[in-house]
């Protein structure tokens, strides 16, 4: 795992220093594409109304060189899955240059989750891919695993070397439910189809958001003051930046992702 340190500019206002922790594993894997990410954004519970709160509104940009999509030869069930599987690595909005499918979160704010009974995250095996390929949730939230395909999959969710669940899913299996156990980045794989990959990010707080197709995100109900923002993207890695949330209203910020190629050079 590499730990690069980088500087990067924020478009809107001033230059901030950003520490970057890019996980080599994620670079190497160069996995997924996030077309259906929005379906995974679940209800974010607002804080109690008494405390003054601000909202972080912003956009994540990526202006680095294009990163080619990953193409896998399908060696199994290619009659159904197709001869090749293409995994889009980085999706940029043509107008805004916004990066789709980055997860923005603010950790370190000790807030109890007011609504632990969030609806289940549905993760479906569809056409030899996971839908969605990126999901976010809170610890304790159920993941519901489904298989819509006429071929067998296994859905193998793990964090590091610890398995969350690894279940066989034959065609028309009934759904499997499993709660997220700890915060962090879960990888989702199918051992039978190596090209099938997804991620679930689990948090112990409600302050997270997935960028939409224009790269925009919005995190409401934040206590005012300085916070550390973490931005994660499965191909581009993790960056951190501090922001100061105004006591009321929106705090706008535009962040540019470090140049992927430059980061690797360092």
């Amino acid at each position: 795992m590499t730990h690069d340190q980088e500087r990067l500019t924020t478009r809107s206002s001033d230059v901030l220093s950003i520490s970057r922790h890019s996980e080599g594993k994620d670079f190497m894997k160069g996995v997924l594409f996030l077309a259906l990410a929005l379906s995974a954004v679940q209800g974010i519970s607002p804080l109690h109304a008494e405390t003054p709160t601000g909202t972080l509104v912003g956009r994540i940009l990526y202006v680095g060189p294009a990163i080619p999509d990953q193409v896998f030869e399908v060696t199994r069930d290619s009659g159904f899955c197709g001869a090749q599987a293409t995994i889009r690595t980085v999706t940029i909005h043509p107008k805004t240059r916004g990066l789709e499918g980055a997860v923005v979160s603010i950790d370190g704010v000790a807030v109890p989750l007011s609504d632990p009974a969030a609806p289940a995250l549905v993760l479906t095996n569809t056409r030899c891919a996971f839908t969605p390929r990126l999901a976010t949730g809170v610890v304790g939230q159920q993941v519901e695993i489904r298989n819509d395909d006429p071929v067998m999959h296994n859905t193998h969710i793990s964090m590091g070397s610890r398995t969350l669940v690894n279940v066989a899913m034959i065609p028309a299996s009934r759904p499997v439910w499993k709660p997220l156990k700890q915060s962090g980045i879960y990888t989702v794989k199918c051992d039978a189809h190596k090209f099938m990959q997804a991620h679930i990010l689990a948090f112990t707080h409600p302050f997270f958001s997935i960028t939409d197709e224009t790269g925009a995100f919005r995190i409401p109900s934040l206590p005012p003051g300085e916070h550390q923002v973490t931005i994660w993207h499965d191909t581009l890695g993790t960056v951190h930046q501090s922001v100061t949330i105004a006591a009321t209203g929106d705090t706008h910020v535009t962040l540019e992702y470090p140049n992927h190629a430059d980061a690797r050079k360092q």
Binding site: N154, H156, N166, V167, A168, I170, R174
Partner: peptide
């Protein structure tokens, strides 16, 4: 139960 940390999945759901 499957064998966690290996590709061997649990078949509990299939045979419930």
């Amino acid at each position: 139960t499957g064998l966690d940390g290996t590709p061997m999945p649990s078949y509990a759901n299939e045979f419930a």
